[in-house]
Structures are given as C-alpha cells and as structure tokens.
Design a protein around this nucleic acid. Structure first.
Lengths: 213, 213
DNA sequence: GATGCAACATACTACTCGGTATCTAGGGAC
DNA sequence: GTCCCTAGATACCGAGTAGTATGTTGCATC
C-alpha cells in the first residue's frame, strides 16, 4: 500500500497520523512551537520520535499541519451560516456562534492558530516550508474573507453601520479568537451551556456593527 | 567608558536597563520567549550577554519585566478615562481609544503581553519566579477589572444591555488586544490617523454593549 | 598613583533537542 | 519458512543556548 490509505482492520495509518496531530496540537497549545520538543509530543502518545518522523518530515511540517487542520475546521464551521439565505445580521450571528462553539470543542487547534505562526519561521526556511506557510496564510485569509463579505452585505443592506468591512473584521475576529485564550474547559459542560456562552459573544459582535434604531 | 553609554552624570544605570528592556520587548515580540536568545537581545544593543546578566538575574526575570512594563503602561493609559466624571459609555469609549493608541505606540510591549505568558513557565519555576508570575497576573487582572467595573456601571445606569460584566469583558478585551496582532507600523503615520483607527475600534466595542433604542 | 568599584566582556560548561542513520518486530505473500 | 515491507524503536551527533566564573577597563577617590 502506498501512502495514506487504509488496509484491512481499520485505518491504522490515518489513525496514527491523527493521534500524532492531536498530541502535537495539545503540546503546541501549552508551550508554543519553540518550547515544545518532539520527544514530549511522542511521549504523550506512548511512542518515540521515530514515529513522528515516519509520518512528518520535520517539526515545522507538523506545526503547519496543526494550523491547516485548525483553519479547515474553522472554514467548515462557519461556512453553512455564511451560505444561508438569511439576513446579514443572522448570518453573522450564526457564524459567530458556530465559531465560538468550535473554539470550545477543539481548543488545542484553535488556540494554536490564534497564537499565530511564530514569525521567526518566516525568516530562515527552505522553499517547501515557505510554500506551506503561504498556504496556511491563504487559508487564514479565506476565513477572514467570509467575515468581511458578510459585513459588507450588512452595510449594503443597511443592517449595519457604514464601516470599512476589512477594518471592522479585525476587532470582530479578535473578540472571537480571544475565547481560545481565556476559556477553560469544564468537564461535563452541557451543550446548552456552551451555546449560551456562544450566543452572548455573538450578540456582542453583531451589536458592535448594527445600526442603532 | 568604551561602549556607547553614559557620558556625564545622567542616570546611566536606569538608561541601560531601559535599553535592555526595549530590546528584549522587540525580540520577544518577534520570536516569543523560547526562541529568543539572550545573545540576540544583547546584540541588538551592541553589547553582550554579560550586560544583561548585570541588570537581570535570568531570562525569565527579563521576560516578566517586559510584561510588568506593558501592564503598567496599560493601566496608565486607561486610568484617566476610567476615572473621568462622564457616562459609562463615554468612559469606556475613552478607555478603548487610549488602549488602542497605546498598542500602536508601544507595539512590542503590548504584543508581548497579548501573547500571554507562556504557560510552561508556570510549571518548572522556583519560588521567586512564581511570585513574579503572580504579580504579573495580578496586574493583568487589575486592568481587566477596570473594564469590568465600567461595564457594570453602564448596565446599572441603563446605558448598556443587561450583560454579565465579567463575561462581556472577555470579547471586549479580545477586540482591543487583537490590534497588537494585525497592526503594522506605518512610518510617518499621523496622530490623527492613529486616532481615527482607535475611534473605529472603540465604536465597535461600545456599540457591542449599548442598548438599541 | 594606588585602590576600589561599577559596568560590563570573554570564555566556558552543561544540557537540550532537531534531525538522521541504523536496527528490529511482526504480519502478509509465496 | 523465507522474503519483504510497514511501522516504528534506538542510538547518536551537532548546533544552539542559559547560566556562570573570571577577566578587564575606566573613572573616582584618596
């Protein structure tokens, strides 16, 4: 069997890749890129560095993979509300709720991407890493663009104040992403409790744009 | 004296301390704590590691000093508006404007504290570092409390929606702190341009709390 | 003009960690 | 039962770096 494919008895290869990625996300969340050692990451799955290097070619490739996964999760979470046939206000509200619940449910990935790719990676990298970096940046931009577009829609429809959508998206995303920094997972938190929290944050960002009337 | 430094009777010692702190803030901003080497920091002021260790006892002490300075700057920036005898709405607006302008004017310090103290420092530290960490956390809380109190005031006066002030402060601070992540210094940016940007962000966070009427 | 101290510079040590090269268990295929 | 490939484990190296121990320079004071 060639690269990533399953064969009988489950999908061992894909599973191990995911195990490693999850462990890396947790480690990067807690300690950041530089302070995280691959020995620690492999310890967490009861394995050694050899396992990681079997699936990933370098530490930074693993880091980028965490970022990409986080971005894709985000896109998947907010897309449906963005595409819904509703008012801009309701679409934005739905995006913000979904975004916040995503942060809660996938905290390691979302906190890592909220921390950002550390900039020194930009400087001394080879060509392939530079390409991955560009890809991750493009994914980030794609997510941001969904918010920019819905803000524009709301301005044009008269639901929102007359703001510069690109600029307005910044504090809006800040409010949402910040959740990954202060939220502490509560064991046994109900789905309704999560949703209530998400609604309050969504109310805040939507109200920040709405016209007073 | 050989190196650039004191000439006559100024406060050479305090100046050098500030030089080092500024260089450290810039380095920590760009690369984070773990990836920043003290050799690099000292290079930036045309000096060597010996100079740093003359003024600071460890790398983490230097890191904490950057944090403390950032917190103190923040407190100093938002205090006046908090204390002003105005409506809660106007006080919060003033705080947010001052906060944002501070971020722009002291980006290295503010971005470092927005990144947060990396959590692995919490784990394996000695007693004195633990104490400094507690102090920095207290300063952070003090700043957040100013926002919480003004939100409460606004709720009680009926200017703001009936929100949980502690919870509402989170996305609000996220919107403000996020500026340190996306803002790129423009050489020759005018004071009015900065203020215009700050006003728009302040409008957003205030509107997020206000009652529609 | 010898002494003392402040303000560093220099040299060195101990240790961590990314990456690599090599080894190995185990399960199909024949 | 031999081959062989997958999925790692183990051992190792070299670079980078926090912290330290010691050297050095210039000014101030007597």
């Amino acid at each position: 069997m060639s690269r990533l494919g399953k064969i009988e008895s489950g999908q061992p290869l894909a599973d191990r890749r995911v195990d490693i990625l999850d462990a890396a996300a947790r480690a990067f969340m807690r300690q950041g890129f530089a302070a995280t050692s691959l020995d620690r990451v492999s310890d967490e799955i009861g394995s050694t560095k050899g396992a990681i290097y079997y699936y990933y070619r370098s530490k930074s490739e693993l880091f980028f993979a965490v970022h990409r996964r986080g971005m894709e999760l985000t896109q998947a979470a907010i897309r449906p509300s963005f595409d819904a046939k509703l008012s801009a206000r309701e679409r934005l509200h739905g995006m913000a709720v979904a975004h916040t619940i995503l942060v809660i449910d996938h905290l390691p990935y979302l906190r890592v991407i909220a921390q950002g790719l550390e900039l020194h990676l930009l400087e001394r990298t080879n060509e392939s890493e530079r390409a991955e970096l560009a890809e991750v940046a493009a994914l980030r931009e794609a997510n941001e663009n969904l918010y920019i577009r819905v803000i524009k829609d709301g301005v044009e429809s008269g639901e929102f104040r007359s703001v510069d959508a690109k600029l307005a998206a910044k504090p809006l995303l800040g409010a949402l992403n910040w959740t990954s920094r202060w939220y502490q997972p509560r064991s046994g938190e109900t789905q309704t409790a999560k949703k209530k929290l998400a609604e309050q944050i969504a109310d805040f960002v939507v109200a920040g744009l709405e016209k007073k009337k």
